[in-house]
């Protein structure tokens, strides 16, 4: 079912460290969830474990079934809400009307502010001229 730990026989060139097969399965299990969507590739060690571990291959196939079911769930239509379209359009209408109502006061305020600024400028200029005339 799972890869057996490497033999503990000591090689003169390399020393193979025994691995825990359950830990291999756990490590691959995390990778299976990541790879299920197709945006993650297995590393060489994970691929080697998958090739030799039936349990992990079964788990991988269950992820494939899960992903297929997820995609088909999207295509399963939910019950339509018959009033929703009208409610959305009404919501947009309200926004449009509120916008139109808001434009007039905003415009009036801008005109008033502009007029006040112009009056202020004229008064300032007149006072400045008068002061200059008196000084001469």
């Amino acid at each position: 079912m799972t890869r057996r730990p490497s033999a503990t026989a000591v090689d003169t060139t390399t020393i193979s460290v025994p691995t825990d097969p359950r830990r291999d399965c756990e490590s691959v299990s995390d990778a299976l969830a990541a790879a299920a969507g197709g945006d993650h590739a297995y590393g060489p060690a994970q691929s080697a474990h998958l090739a030799s571990c039936l349990r992990c291959r079964v788990e991988e196939s269950r992820y494939r079934r899960l992903m297929a079911a997820m995609r088909s769930l999207r295509e399963t239509p939910v019950l339509k809400d018959s009033r929703l379209e009208a409610q959305i359009l009404l919501h947009l209408d309200r926004h449009d009307h509120r916008g139109a109502r808001d434009v007039r006061p905003r415009l009036a305020a801008k005109v008033a502010a502009g007029a006040a600024a112009a009056a202020g400028l004229m008064a300032f200029t007149a006072r400045h001229r008068r002061a200059a005339r008196l000084a001469s």
């Binding site: 995390d30 969830a33 299920a36 969507g37 269950r62 992820y63 899960l66």
Partner: peptide, 10 residues
């Protein structure tokens, strides 16, 4: 979160 969710669902 995605990997955790997939694992829980599976």
């Amino acid at each position: 979160r995605l990997h955790r969710a997939r694992r829980r669902l599976r």
